[in-house]
Nucleic acid binder design. Structure first.
Length: 326
RNA sequence: CCGCCCUUAGCUCAGACUGGUAGAGCAGUCGACUGUAGAUCGACUUGCCCCCCGUUCAAAUCGGGGAGGGCGGACCA
């Protein structure tokens, strides 16, 4: 797989394609980042972007994981001590999941976001940005909460992070797109370079198949699920025997295969009793999706298989969490 | 600082005028039917009624105080 394909596969959006193609010409040593508000347990939403980070590392890029403690503080996620504690757990789980330690730099926001130069730049950016513009960038992340000044500062800091972390690429879920667009618009106004952005899709809600727009709300599968819980959750997922359900719904089981399983496994084996046709082997997502669509692969078998592969992906992180908590 | 409106189940809200310790829809849980889930049908669960004080035999409801949220307070209309 060439570098461009590694950078862009499974991405919902690439901004801009031209810039990313340039980056793919010589990716070695280039720096990409994702920012996360620290949380103690990783869920599928985190892992989706982590898969992209692994792709980037495979292409030779350096990955910066921003443990966004100041952002979490702005979002009232706890005291700095609590936030830092969950951030350490988060870091351990990312490494257990498969990020390459040698190519990953974990950075706390508070390490540089409280410096004088950064702060002054932030104030500069505040002067350059209307409240309307900042709020629009945050709408997706903020949800229904009442707007606070902190919500306006939040996306401005993300904009500066891209400069201060010396990045070549910003990565995030599709919910980050407005923030990244704000950054692309504002960085030149401060005489900084524009960086491209790659956005991962938002997977539909597991039980309803609805979504594409809501952020991490509906995602229920996490690093702390036991094998049994995982099986139960996957089994209760919405899964019509089609690729494209009616009424604008998605098939979340297929989405999980596409975005979580196939990027991490060379082949997927569906174990089936002989009476249902015996085992099936897939080397790519397309073949599996086509078989589900045609009826060759029954949803129940797809679910069983999905659960066991997800379990394998989650197992090391689950183990790490257990260690940390004991 | 001043004024008006809102706060009841996870969510959206009814109930308040005419006090008698709460309801609907959606969601959720469980069964039936499907080799999954959904849909459908059947059953079921859910509450510091924002807080405090007072009136009363009795307060979600009346009175006072407070908190949180929304909106308004130039001109124009």
């Amino acid at each position: 797989m060439d570098a461009y394909e590694l950078l862009t596969r499974n991405a919902e959006e690439v901004v801009t394609d031209e810039e990313v193609r340039d980056l793919a010409e010589d990716p070695a040593g280039k720096r990409a980042y994702v920012g996360y508000e620290p949380s103690g347990v990783l869920h599928l939403g985190h892992l989706l972007t982590a898969n992209k980070l692994i792709d980037l590392q495979d292409a030779g890029m350096e990955v910066v994981v921003l443990l966004a403690d100041v952002h979490a503080y702005l979002n009232e996620k706890g005291t700095f001590e609590e936030i830092r504690d969950t951030a350490e757990q988060m870091k351990a789980q990312f490494l257990a999941y498969g990020l390459d330690e040698a190519q990953t730099e974990f950075v706390y926001g508070s390490e540089f976001q409280l410096e004088e130069e950064y702060t002054l730049d932030l104030h500069h950016l505040e002067r350059e940005t209307t409240m309307n513009r900042a709020q629009r960038a945050m709408a997706e992340i903020q949800g229904d909460e009442t707007a606070k000044v902190s919500h306006l500062v939040y996306p401005l800091m993300q904009t500066l992070d891209i400069e201060y972390l010396d990045l070549d690429l910003a990565v995030g879920g599709l919910d980050q797109r407005k923030v990244h667009m704000l950054a692309r618009e504002k960085l030149p106004e401060l005489d900084y370079d524009v960086r491209p952005a790659i956005h991962t899709p938002i997977v539909a809600d597991l039980t309803s198949g609805e979504g594409k727009m809501s952020s991490s709300e509906g995602i229920s599968i996490s690093m702390e699920d036991s094998t049994e819980e995982l099986e139960e959750k996957v089994n209760s997922a919405f899964c019509p025997p089609t690729r494209e359900p009616e009424d604008d719904l998605e098939n979340p089981v297929l989405e999980l295969f596409e975005y979580h399983v196939f990027p991490r496994f060379e082949e997927v084996v569906v174990e089936r009793p002989d009476k249902y046709g015996g085992d099936l082997t897939y080397e790519g997502y397309e073949d599996l999706a086509e078989d589900l669509d045609s009826g060759e692969l029954h949803p129940a078998d797809a679910k069983g298989t999905l659960a066991s592969y997800l379990d394998e992906l989650i197992a090391p992180g689950r183990e790490k969490l257990r260690e940390l908590r004991s």
